[in-house]
Design a protein around this nucleic acid. Structure first.
Lengths: 242, 242
DNA sequence: GTCTATAACGAGATAGAC
DNA sequence: GTCTATCTCGTTATAGAC
């Protein structure tokens, strides 16, 4: 990782970026299933074989786009997290959710690439797994902080044994200091967040919900609650079930 | 709607069904974006122009497949509802959620068609709106029954005014007897359910959750709670916070 | 060494004449 | 309904420019 790079490397990075930009444009126009190296090359005034210097195959180009997209939402989520450092957990949680939604609405086709239908014939490689988890980790970070400051319910309905086993495994892999049931709830909330976002981005709320901003914020706050976050410190009354 | 139909109509229905079946097969193999009338015709040993007697365009065929898919999940949800008539609301809710998930896992490509990435260049016509709401209506039916039998929390965090307006409008359009905040929560839970299902069907839980059945059931029960359903009748202590 | 261009293969889709 | 000529695609081999 040299700081000063030669002109060659810089040129290479520029072409690589131009290819990905054009590919994203094609993605928006035709969808991932129809992404073709030839069309990208044509649009760039290159010849298709030249692209192979930058991406060894169409699938590798797709993979690069997917990783970029995961990194982009992940970054947006992490920024929201950092910008609300010290704020109450529910506020931070909602901020992360908002960031994810904002990114998705601004980049619907890239959102579709990572959270929409799988591309036929394409199978995502291992390298996509870590970027794919960034949003989830940002949400978990909120829960971890809440737990540390006693702003977490830890006594919801008991989770089934099999769920706890998964949560334990996850807990060790992520090296996260959270009770297993809490972690399980956070994972569920993570998935549910993308239900809300997906419905909006993919048009399922058409003629159902008009006030999308308000609806989302409200739902995100309820999600925070489902994940165990509370607005106040624990008292004896908490955890007694409602 | 005649009960006894002529041989001609029966033949027409059979061919229509064969076309849709083959189209579904192509859907699984190539994805909706690449669905072509010609390919369907070829596979059926017909000539493409003959297909136009049954579907005036590729988009109309797509629309038929989409409506079929919505009707199929909707039917599964409604069946689960009927099979658990009289059961406690949380049980009925979970049953509906399970039915949706079961259908989605059994028909991943049709699930992708209705809840995955939009097909580029295709815009869903009005006719898809009603079928698209069947699952949501099944969930709402559970909440309505719970409300009628006093098994519903009605005093969650107050919803923003704009959300309440949407909920009121929805309440009138669906002719459903529910407090607006409850309806809003149900809509959110509806969307969140598809977050859980989508994550599983589209592979986002790979290497995260292994015990998918247990995880889903547990999450669905928590969703029921988020939608306001409770296991027991309301008491004075209810609504005093989480 | 690094890149681009030409040409080609085999597979498939498509448009239109018949 | 059939046939053909013309497209597209991913990918590779090869040759030459910087």
């Amino acid at each position: 990782m040299t700081v000063v790079r030669g002109a060659r490397e810089r040129a290479r990075d520029e072409v690589t970026a131009a290819i990905k930009d054009e590919a994203r444009r094609r993605l928006a126009a035709e969808g991932a299933a129809r992404l073709s190296l030839r069309a990208v090359a044509r649009e760039l005034g290159m010849v298709s074989s030249a692209l192979y210097r930058y991406f060894p195959s169409r699938d590798e180009l797709l993979t690069a786009l997917i990783i970029d997209a995961y990194d982009a939402v992940g970054k947006a989520a992490e920024r929201a997290l950092a910008e609300h450092a010290g704020a109450p957990p529910v506020v931070r949680w909602t901020a992360v959710c908002r960031a994810v939604r904002g990114w998705a609405l601004a980049h619907p086709h890239e959102y579709a690439l990572i959270h929409g239908s799988p591309v036929p014939g394409y199978s995502a490689p291992r390298a996509t797994v870590r970027p794919a988890s960034r949003v989830g980790l940002a949400l978990i970070a909120v829960v971890v902080d809440a737990h540390a400051s006693g702003l977490l319910r830890t006594s919801d309905a008991p989770a089934p044994r099999a769920v706890l086993r998964d949560a334990e495994r996850l807990r060790e892999r992520l090296d996260v200091r959270l009770p297993a049931p809490v972690l399980a709830a956070a994972v569920a909330a993570w998935a549910q967040l993308f239900g809300l976002v997906g419905f909006e981005v993919f048009g399922q709320f058409e003629q159902v919900i008009d006030a999308r901003d308000a609806f989302f914020d409200h739902a995100a706050a309820q999600l925070a609650h489902a994940a165990g976050l509370t607005d106040h410190h624990r008292t004896a009354a908490d955890g007694a079930g409602q």
